[in-house]
């Protein structure tokens, strides 16, 4: 196993791990705002590692540039998309989930 292969395997593993975290977050987290945390952070980094692995694997100029572009693009658009959706959700009056004690305080 060469260094390049080792790097590729490592990056792919990290990418899959963070995609997994994003999926678990999407299922477990309580409201649309906290789920967006999963969509922006974990999923973006997962994509980042996966694309890094692909760029290292190919190692040719065209593919590295395409990978870099895809990376920059995802890092810029994912937060923006999440922002657009949570903004719409907030404007529609969808409640922000808070911890239980706080819920009780508010209802008093």
């Amino acid at each position: 196993m060469t260094l390049v292969t080792a790097l590729v395997v490592l990056f792919v593993a990290l990418g899959v791990f963070f995609t997994f975290v994003a999926a678990v977050g999407m299922i477990r987290l309580p409201d649309v705002y906290s789920r967006s945390h999963a969509a922006t952070k974990a999923d973006t980094l997962g994509a980042g590692f996966a694309i890094l692995a692909v760029a290292v694997y190919f190692g040719t100029l065209g593919e590295v540039i395409r990978g870099a572009f895809l990376l920059v693009f995802i890092y810029y658009t994912n937060p923006t998309a999440a922002h657009a959706i949570t903004r719409a959700a907030y404007s529609r009056g969808i409640d922000v989930w808070t911890t239980e004690e706080n819920r009780q305080e508010e209802s008093r």
Partner: peptide, 20 residues
């Protein structure tokens, strides 16, 4: 951020305390 986030999400008790 992601390491912290992974810890929070995978923690069995889901230790979050959101605010705006």
């Amino acid at each position: 951020a992601n390491v912290q986030f992974a810890y929070v999400v995978l923690h069995p008790r889901l230790p979050i305390d959101p605010r705006l």
